[in-house]
């Protein structure tokens, strides 16, 4: 029992850190750059994607034994599209303003390669529970990725965080941060930061290896 929980935890953490879709695999860049102008948008986009990811991976995994390989992609796409439609309705029901802010990117979750990739590479080969745990990890990793962009862009671009003003009324917004180039700049800076972390870690490993 204990062994399986540890494995499940590892599986979950895989998506958040080692195979983070945004910062390691650089997947799903379209929503990452487009909707992260505010933390709320980023968070809701991340959660929507994660929900679609978990639900479709679960269903794909349940159907893995009855899906002939010739039609598997068609089956995956139909399943993913179904859950995207459901999430689309749900967001409209929760808030129209949010729906307008996310725009076409909710429907575009269908073609997000993270989801199809997970379905093909993991869910189709594993039983439902591990598949969903793995999908949840990926979804959480994607949400964290979006959120880390959204937070920086909202703080610099509007001086607020989740709509709460941080610096008072006389804050000078960095307009570029809420424009498309801001997305590229912030993503680039984060990638730079993670590359630097990775490099430092490897240098430390090399040093300890030398000392031993």
């Amino acid at each position: 029992m204990n062994v399986t929980t540890t494995r499940g935890w590892d599986e979950f953490m895989e998506g958040i850190w080692k195979q983070n879709p945004t910062f390691v695999m650089i997947l799903g860049m379209c929503p990452t750059l487009a909707v992260t102008v505010s933390a709320v948008n980023a968070l809701s986009m991340g959660i929507s994607t994660a929900l679609v990811l978990i639900a479709s991976c679960g269903l794909v995994s349940m159907m893995r034994n009855v899906t002939p390989k010739e039609v598997r992609i068609a089956v995956y796409i139909v399943i993913i599209a179904t859950f995207v439609t459901a999430v689309d309705y749900a967001i409209q029901a929760i808030s129209l303003a949010l729906y307008d802010a996310l725009g076409a990117f909710i429907q575009l979750i269908v073609v997000n390669c993270i989801i199809l990739g997970r379905a093909e590479a993991h869910a189709a080969k594993n039983p439902p529970i591990p598949a969903m745990v793995n999908a949840a990890g990926m979804g959480a990793g994607f949400t964290i990725g979006l959120l880390s962009l959204g937070v920086v862009r909202e703080i610099l671009g509007a001086g607020t965080l989740f709509g709460v003003s941080l610096f008072g009324a006389s804050f000078q917004p960095w307009v570029i941060m809420v424009l498309p180039p801001g997305g590229f700049f912030v993503l680039g800076s984060w990638l730079l930061f993670f590359a630097w972390l990775e490099r430092r870690k490897q240098r430390k490993l090399a040093e300890t290896a030398e000392n031993v």
């Binding site: 269903l59 159907m63 009855v66 899906t67 002939p68 039609v71 068609a74 089956v75 139909v78 399943i79 599209a81 179904t82 859950f83 439609t85 459901a86």
Partner: peptide, 13 residues
């Protein structure tokens, strides 16, 4: 299989 998937998905939508 496709029929089954379509039926399930139709129900969900």
């Amino acid at each position: 299989t496709l029929g089954l998937v379509s039926a399930i998905c139709g129900l969900i939508i």
